[in-house]
Design a protein around this nucleic acid. Sequence first.
RNA 1: GGGCGUAUAGCUCAGUCGGUUAGAGCGCAUCCCUGAUAAGGAUGAGGCCCCAGGUUCAAGUCCUGGUACGCCCA
Length: 1058
Amino acid sequence: MTQERLPSRPFPSLPAQIDLPAVEHEVLRRWSERKVFERSLEQTRGGPNWVFFEGPPTANGQPGVHHVEARVFKDVFPRFKTMKGFHVERKAGWDCHGLPVEVAVEKELGLSGKKDIEEFGVAEFNARCRASVLRNVDAFTQMTERMGYWVNMDEAYRTMDPEYVESVWWSLKVIWDKGLLVRDYRISPYCPRCGTSLSDHEVAQGYETVTDPSVYVRFPLTSGPLADPDHPTALLVWTTTPWTLVSNTAVAVHPDVNYVVATDGTERLLLAEPLVGSVLGEGWKLTGERFEGAEMERWTYQRPFELVAFDQPAHYVVLADYVTVEDGTGLVHQAPAFGADDMAVSRAYGLPIVNPVRGDGTFEADLDLVGGVFFKEADTALTADLKERGLLFRHVAYEHSYPHCWRCHTALLYYALPSWYIKTTAIKDELLAQNAETNWVPANVKEGRYGEWLRNNVDWALSRSRYWGTPLPVWICPEDHVNVVGSLAELGELAGRDLSALDPHRPYVDDVTFACPQCGGEAHRVPEVIDVWYDSGSMPFAQWGAPHRNEDVFRDNFPGQYICEAIDQTRGWFYSMMTVSTLVFGQSSYENVVCLGHILAEDGRKMSKHLGNILEPMAVMERHGADALRWFMAASGSPWTPRRVGHAALEEIVRKVLLTYYNTASFFTLYANAGQAWDHSRLADAPAPADRPLLDRWVLSELNRVVKGVDEALERFDTATAGRLLTAFVDDLSNWYVRRSRRRFWAGANTPEGASAFATLFECLETVTLLMAPLVPFLTEHVWAALRRPDAAESVHLASWPQVREELIDEELSRQMALTRRLVELGRAARADSGVRTRQPLARALVGATLFGSLPEQLRGQIREELNVVALDSLSVVGGDLVDYTVKPNFRALGKRFAKRTPLIAQGIGAADPKTLVEQIRSTGWAHIEVEGEPVEVSAEEVLVTEQPREGWAVASEAGETVALDLEVTPELQLAGLAREVVRLVQDARKASGLDISDRIHLWWSATDPTTARAVAEHAATIGGEVLAASMTEGAPEEEVYSVSSQDYGVTLWLRKA
RNA sequence: GGGCGUAUAGCUCAGUCGGUUAGAGCGCAUCCCUGAUAAGGAUGAGGCCCCAGGUUCAAGUCCUGGUACGCCCA
């Protein structure tokens, strides 16, 4: 569409019909041609920085509509702050590494597992991962542009770029130097066939129901009060993985559970009291000996197998809260190499971690009984051996769900793998202190979900045995000296050659070795790469390549003021952003963090290809427009809770918000361009706001309340409230201000009323366009281009945020207008009830409402016009016997004064004679009532009075307010009504015949109905004025012209342009 | 199993400091208004404010416990 200005017309026209997606494409073109984003940055350079950090989306897979959500929030506040004069750099970023990328590429290549990848070649595999990431980045870029998210994608950081990797290395070296980077074991779900550990997500895909042996084994006690060799007592231990008994290290009990000794006459077993019945059954009785778990700590026992060596003390009872009495015996066998809980407990006791199972899942070859046997297959031999030695108490089959490899269906092993950790537990207090300084939106996340997570902090398992990730920059020599390298330059120095062009990924970086500075032995890099969350948490410095490069830029942009993602990032990015910076710099990297709820499909379920309920973001934006989708994300419901998005919701936003706003602007240009045109120069001549009609003062007051409210809401990151305020104002502006002011616009800009109206509407549109610009940047830009003052910024996004004009806010007027509108609604209800159409004027309306007396004449005039009545009076002028009163207690007021006695007083008010009560209140402001024989005085504000005329009126009441219409239609009123019908017929005909609103016409009329004829004749001047008739002639014209007839009123009308 | 959140009309959601007639939009039906509008207005039908206790003169609202769903973790 074009926005050309005709010489005679001050404004380009905004046609009533609009194709929103087409407008958006036009706006996108304009932004790009005129470099508006770049100029918005240029313009604010030198202003205070407001630092925004882009949480890099994982460029794995195609963007979905849920990606639009966070990206809307990442756009709205930087636009808002830019309009307020802040300089908001927006550097895009892409999270490139990680298992999901690897898995996608594996699928693409038909590979399965690490063995396949290594045969395929790590260099080529990683090259494919890189290519896959770049493909998806493209799709994200297109979506980002289309939705109007202003972010600098030309200089986007990528976590796979060498400069980024080098920054990450540097930070890890800082952490190492602080002694917080350590080696330890980590229990991971592990597929022995594929030789790889699996992510939680992969594990979740592979649960299968299997039957395992369930064994109860005797562990005879060797110390403690029950270790009597004459009456030996054994711990009764239950496990479904007999093969782990080889590595038994301890037995865990719950400190608060009671354990008891039971005997069948020959042997004595110790187990949890609640499980005696279900485990032992008939023939067993309790000996009366009873211990709390806590008392049993460190009692030693005889371990079940002597197959592997322990070089430290072990095999005693330990305490653990995770032990339950729901199944088993309440005594839990501990093999720390094969269970995360076991590992944690054993570590707390300083127990050794013994692991006789090799990476391929078989026991070490030199072991007796099970040497070389696959772990799962060792159960039979081990169980048989236990039975032979009299240690097996019971052996049954046990069916349960157990995780298997999703690739090859091999049973997974929970397996201790050597792993690198960051000792985040050492900085837990610092993290809590940083969190205390952080503003969370919504607030509950701070101490809730996130605070809880911090308080239960465990060390960060950093390493991954994978390929496509930032390589852990650790080189180890045969003497086990650890060398952490902080840059390629440093690595080059160690290796004695220039490595500045090295790709710091596997396998190239693995090939670099050097002589250990401590012992001269050849140091090799450890095989691991790091957790991708560490990559993304490093972005505040790594996006600049700091400190190797751009150290100053980094320092100017740290910490950040604002980050935003969906709620699932609490333990992901929000955590890694806070933790990496606290580890490296001793402070969090962000001050404000917004957590969004998830976007669901219209059916309330997650969007998934499988369910076929995906909304494709580009298609959605082409259908409804990006603005509609943005408004939905920002302002529909509560962004912090899950929300359902669908076409219906977006259509409603288009109709209720966007088109209502646009059509108001369209109306404005239509009339500003008509007749004696209005242009910006008239703003100077317009009356001061205080001298404008009350309706204008009201809408300016509302406008400024909205400016204030929207500003405050956006300052606290509350787009939902901002959206609600704007929706309500746009509705008020269109459906009350414009509706009530139409006549003044018709009257034209040269009349005093018109001058006010044009100025007021222009000011409202200009300001509301600014307020809406961060939320719906396209449509506001389009409207801005049409309406802007000649000296105003070329783009709304280069303009300044509006300042509230407190002096224009008039709370009293707001209340009065609210009453005016309530009374109009009541009057319309009364008309609808009685079936008298609004075009039929009525003689009088009566109003009963507390504040009616204070209503200014101008507002009474609004009611008269809107209800089409000649006179408007208070019901009290009728008074006396013609009016019925009902009174109700106002509990809110009564409660303050009477507290417990409120119900009694309320009852007393109900029992009193309404008329007497009202008369007392009217004359003295107080009324006397009886409560339990005692006199009590109640004030005017403590009772709600409703008054209704007795008969002959159409009445509507609500909440103590009443409007009554006099239904008597006198002959004069009837004629006036008919005249209005004729006016409407002519107006319809003008519109239907395509006349311009300011065209003058010649009008002919002929009435078969004598009453109508009289009405036209008597009201000819009015009719002619209303319809811009230059001449009005009775009888048909001689020429052929446009005509319309009404059988209802017995009239035919002809018209043509004058 | 734990933490956090959500639950109000058929649907999507508001609901302020606790105040006795709980609202809006969509959808349905009937009617009205219209010289910007894809709009606007009125009326009608539609409510166990998730359940159970408690606090209070008074609870959709505050407290405790539960149920269902969601997210994260185990």
